[in-house]
């Protein structure tokens, strides 16, 4: 019989466990404001994880990822206000818009890698932003679309308000994190990591790496769309700032800060940025500077992101 090993549990397990308990149990004891911030964390957490599929797992650095998030949000906004569509149609419409767009743009971007991928996704992201800003009859331009009804009411929850919405978002978040965790452990998920690690080798083994890269782009777009739908309902409005370059780069920061290829890391990155932004800005208008400092410190102290702290450094 093997001797029981006396190793302490990985700190990550402890943190993740405490985090899960907190997310599940804390909101009833928090003020509505903090519940709102936590809601943002879980929604943006989904978004950050979806980008992690691209950056961390497939090795495709996208700087236009907020585009799908935004387009799905616009889908919900436009359908539920202009067309007075029902909740199912609005959600389905938002999801199809975001995912369909990823399927379309994926055809273009999956042919390039590395810095070219970065640049082309950035350019497409800016085109989408321009469209949201300029296609006024549909998007309301700079003013955006307001008046999206409350999701809790639409789906017939007995109660409305920050806490019911939060738990709704948490359920969606839980479903997404479980799905993505299975995804990255699946044969397909492993092929994505193979592409990140050595794409030519993948090809000579018999993988059509273009197809896998494309599918990962579509998957990431689909999860980003889920986040976009929740975001539209959370804020009750959509505006071009959802999909501008700032949004995409902040998202990029969440992933790199939290630790790419970990899924949990980007959620922590999202949490850190949301909390930092809102708590710090109460004290100083220079919160961006502080975020910059935090980022630099992280780069120096945990170059692979917070969640990879103490793991072997990637070459």
């Amino acid at each position: 019989m093997a001797e029981p090993r006396a190793t302490a549990p990985d700190w990550r397990l402890v943190v993740a466990g405490l985090g899960a308990v907190f997310l599940l149990a804390a909101p009833p004891f928090l003020s509505a404001y903090w519940v709102g911030l936590l809601t943002q964390v879980v929604i943006l957490g989904i978004l950050a994880m979806s980008l992690d599929l691209l950056i961390g797992y497939t090795g495709l650095p996208s700087l236009g990822h907020a585009g799908f998030f935004g387009v799905a949000a616009y889908g919900v906004g436009i359908l539920s206000t202009t067309y007075q569509a029902g909740v199912v149609a609005s959600i389905a419409g938002g999801f199809i818009a975001g995912t369909g767009l990823a399927a379309l743009l994926g055809l273009i971007v999956s042919h390039v890698r590395d810095v070219y991928f970065l640049m082309i996704t950035m350019a497409l992201g800016m085109v989408l932003w321009g469209l949201s800003f300029r296609w006024i009859p549909v998007t309301g331009g700079d003013n955006g679309i307001a008046g999206i009804p409350r999701l809790e009411t639409l789906i017939g929850l007995p109660a409305t308000g920050p806490i019911p919405f939060y738990y709704l978002a948490l359920v969606v978040f839980a479903a997404c994190i479980v799905l993505m965790m299975v995804l990255v452990k699946s044969p397909f998920g492993l092929t994505l990591q193979g592409i990140r690690e050595h794409e030519p080798r993948m090809r000579s083994l018999g993988f059509n790496t273009w197809l896998h890269g494309y599918l990962s782009y579509v998957c990431a777009g689909a999860f980003a769309s889920v986040a976009g739908i929740m975001w539209a309902y959370y804020n009750g409005f959509v505006s071009p700032t959802y999909l501008d370059l700032t949004a995409s780069s902040e998202l990029f920061l969440m992933v790199t800060l939290g630790g790419p290829a970990t899924l949990v890391g980007p959620v922590i990155g999202a949490g850190a940025i949301v909390i930092l932004k809102n708590v710090m800005s109460a004290y100083t208008a220079r919160w961006l500077l502080i975020l910059g400092i935090v980022y630099i410190v992280t780069i120096l102290w945990a170059p692979q992101g917070l969640w990879n702290l103490g793991r072997h450094r990637r070459s």
Binding site: L179, K185, S186, P187, F188, T191, H198, F207
Partner: peptide, 28 residues
């Protein structure tokens, strides 16, 4: 695939010519 474990390297190679390489929601 330097950052993957040895077994994952081999598993990837095993899946390369199998249709199940597209399986998404079941662990390898």
């Amino acid at each position: 695939f330097p950052e993957l474990s040895v077994i994952d390297n081999v598993l990837l190679a095993c899946a390369a010519l199998d249709r199940r390489k597209f399986t998404m929601f079941r662990p390898l």
